[in-house]
Amino acid sequence: MKSQARIPTGRISDPGYPRASNPEYTRHHPRWYRRRMPIFWWLRKLAYTKFILRELTSQPVMYVTLFLLGKMWVLSRGPEAYETFIQWLSHPALLAFHALVLAGLLFHTVTWLNLTPKALVLRVAGRKIPGWAIVGAHYGAWLGLSGAIFWILAGR
């Protein structure tokens, strides 16, 4: 009954979907127009561009993880190797690149922490914890952990 009464769904996957390219207009089957999503759709709106940049922080994350492992490997190779590595890291070009990577990481952190209240709904004694408190707690944790890392690795 239903399928008979309804017009085709208009989804491209639907075999009954009339293609825009179909030159024939049939009296009772209008042709729907579907706009194609451009390949660079994420340039259409600033919000989408920000989204794609956020997604691309996967690359700094990947790089930094490999970097940390690389540093472990260098440390296992003895003091000379480490010294060369440090020299190499001090090169201005590499420092600039690393600053950029760090910016990417920070973008990841900020976007990630800002979205926490969307995924987490916590209740204490029946009362919902407001979003700002959840975000605040995460930023607190971030600052705390960062401080601890600093203290352990660079504080002495």
Binding site: R6, I7, T9, G10, R11, P30, W32, Y33, R34, R35
Partner: peptide
């Protein structure tokens, strides 16, 4: 995101 039936009218059956 919706197929256009006509002008400003999209198809919402989906």
């Amino acid at each position: 995101g919706f197929p256009v039936i006509r002008d400003l009218v999209g198809d919402l059956e989906d």
